[in-house]
Nucleic acid binder design. Structure first.
Length: 491
RNA sequence: GCCGGCGUAGCUCAGCUGGUUAGAGCGCCUGAUUGUGGAUCAGGAGGUCCCCCGUUCAACCCGGGGCGUCGGUACCA
């Protein structure tokens, strides 16, 4: 190996990142457009913010130190200030609102679509760069805004072809969760213990009831032999929490009733239940039934900033890949965060919103085979016979393009046979063929590549194949109309 | 972060109880077919068997370390 070889980089990308090519991008673009359409119909306005924010704006300094916390991609600018790639769209929104709130309408409703970055271990359907479609309402504490989140999401899903019954939105309220913790005698100041309980609750769907019981009590040993310390609750306390987790039934009002008992007079808990009841009425008014939105007490949604109602969405069917069931995880997360803006201004500004995970949704639809076919327009390929007549070929391309038809010249150096292979691989609908015969006669030959592909399945005889049933000859001046009629055959 | 599986051609994967020339299918290239994508047939190109160190007369295979990847678990705005 020479020194030069040693210095030659291996082409590769960092783990958790990906290249997306034409079909992926077309699918994503289509999905994002559908989602944006719904957001705008609900009155949200577009906002875009930079990929980088200062680290203190994101709130990701390690406590008592000037180094970034884990989980963010951070670097130091030339003025020594730490900045980091945004890890969601909510923190930049808070910053934007704190900075420009006086010039914005109040309440302020905006959506933001784009990539976010998290420096953590990638997993199945989990990347370090991924797209989120976020929408939020800042400046109102009305439960209407929270209930509307459900309507927005349900509308999006259904517009994307995920019908009623295929998905379920799960709503809970952090205040109820807090109330239950009050009720079992875990006070606010025992934040460590409360966190451990919340973490345990969050794992219900993965570890099941027994796993959660262990985590609430002494702790749990997992399959790999790793031991997780539990919350150390007493048996009676565990029973209350498990009862709470079991309170999810299809009747939302009944859930509220059960929760009211479980929070045992906790003021915070009572308030949470009242909020849920209000949301229930609003959902009813929007015709969102229990087949679309459920109250599920096990929903925690992370540990950080949510202060009230929280929501997540899951698909109700299982997806198999390579014969194995695939866990799709949550396709959307959101909730109310009433003190996020306060960090900047000292003023308490209520806000609520949610974020659709585009990549997971895309993966789900793809696994289901419900992705609409790649609709990106494939170009007509103009093959080249006589290299000294490039101007004539170029004119054909211009004519087609002027008529709004995607077209390209074959730009390689290979022979005609290879040019057609190229067009085939490109999934081009039509090849334009013009050699000396055509030029002499003032015609062009148009080959319907899609029809040809179809016919080739039936033709096994070389001579029949050579008859070229998928080709037509038209006058040069009829190039555009001729191509158009071939394109229309298959649309 | 911790635990485990895997890493052989562009892709999917075989193979070797360690023995010198490492295979298949698909894909790719050339031709049969002076101007026609398919099918068929005949040829062909393509591999540091992930990297480094060690054991050995001999390592793609065994041992150690690393990297990557996949899965579980922890953390997660």
């Amino acid at each position: 190996m020479s020194d030069r070889d040693a210095a030659r980089p291996t082409p590769r990308i960092p783990r958790g990142f990906r290249d997306l090519f034409a079909a992926d991008l077309a699918a994503r673009r289509q999905m994002v457009q559908t989602i944006i359409g719904v957001y705008e119909r609900f009155g949200f306005e577009a906002l875009d913010t930079p990929a980088f924010e200062y680290l203190d704006v994101l709130g990701k300094f390690l406590p008592e130190s000037d180094t970034p916390a884990g989980g963010v991609f951070a670097l130091r600018d030339d003025d020594e200030q730490w900045m980091a790639l945004r890890y969601d769209h909510t923190a930049p929104l808070s910053r934007f609102y704190a900075q420009h709130g006086n010039r914005l309408t109040n309440p302020f409703r905006r959506y933001q679509v784009g990539p976010v970055w998290r420096q953590e271990k990638p997993g199945p359907g989990r990347f370090r760069e991924f797209y989120q479609c976020d929408f939020d309402t800042v400046g109102t504490d009305s439960m209407v805004a929270d209930a509307e989140i459900c309507a927005v999401v349900a509308t999006c899903f259904e517009a994307l072809g995920i019908g009623r019954g295929d998905y379920i939105l799960k709503v809970n309220n952090r205040k109820v969760l807090g109330g239950v913790l009050d009720a079992i005698g875990l006070p606010q100041d025992q934040s460590g213990g409360r966190l451990t309980v919340l973490r345990a609750i969050d794992k219900l769907d993965r570890l099941g009831e027994d796993g959660v019981r262990l985590l609430l009590g002494k702790g749990r040993m997992d399959a790999s032999g790793d031991y997780t310390r539990g919350a150390g609750l007493a048996a009676e306390q565990i029973e209350i929490v498990m009862g709470y987790l079991g309170a999810c039934v299809s009747d939302r009002q009944e859930v509220c009733g059960r929760l009211r008992e479980l929070v045992g007079g906790s003021e915070e808990g009572e308030e949470g239940v009242r909020e849920l009841e209000e949301i229930h009425d609003l959902l009813d008014a929007m015709d969102l039934g229990p087949d679309q939105v459920l109250f599920d007490p096990s929903v925690v949604r992370g540990l950080a900033y949510y202060t009230g109602p929280v929501v997540e969405a899951v698909l109700t069917f299982e997806v198999e890949e390579d014969g194995e069931k695939r866990e799709l995880g949550s396709l959307l997360g959101g909730g109310r965060y009433d003190d996020l803006v306060e960090r900047f201004t000292g003023e308490k500004i209520p806000a609520t919103g949610a974020s659709i995970g585009v990549d997971r949704l895309l993966a789900a639809l793809e696994a289901l085979g419900r992705l609409e076919a790649d609709r990106a327009e494939r170009p007509v390929v103009i093959t080249i016979f006589e290299r000294d007549r490039m101007a004539d070929y170029q004119r054909m391309a211009s004519d087609l393009r002027s008529a709004g038809i995607a077209a390209e010249l074959y730009l390689g150096k290979k022979g005609f046979r290879q040019q057609l292979k190229y067009a085939d691989k490109r999934d081009s609908p039509v090849a334009v063929i013009a050699g000396s015969n055509e030029f002499e006669g003032g015609t062009v030959t148009l080959k319907d590549l899609r029809l040809g592909k179809k016919l080739s399945r039936e033709i096994t005889d070389r001579e029949k194949w050579k008859e070229q049933p998928a080709q037509v000859s038209v006058k040069r001046e009829d190039l555009v109309s001729g191509v158009r009629s071939l394109l229309e055959r298959h649309s």
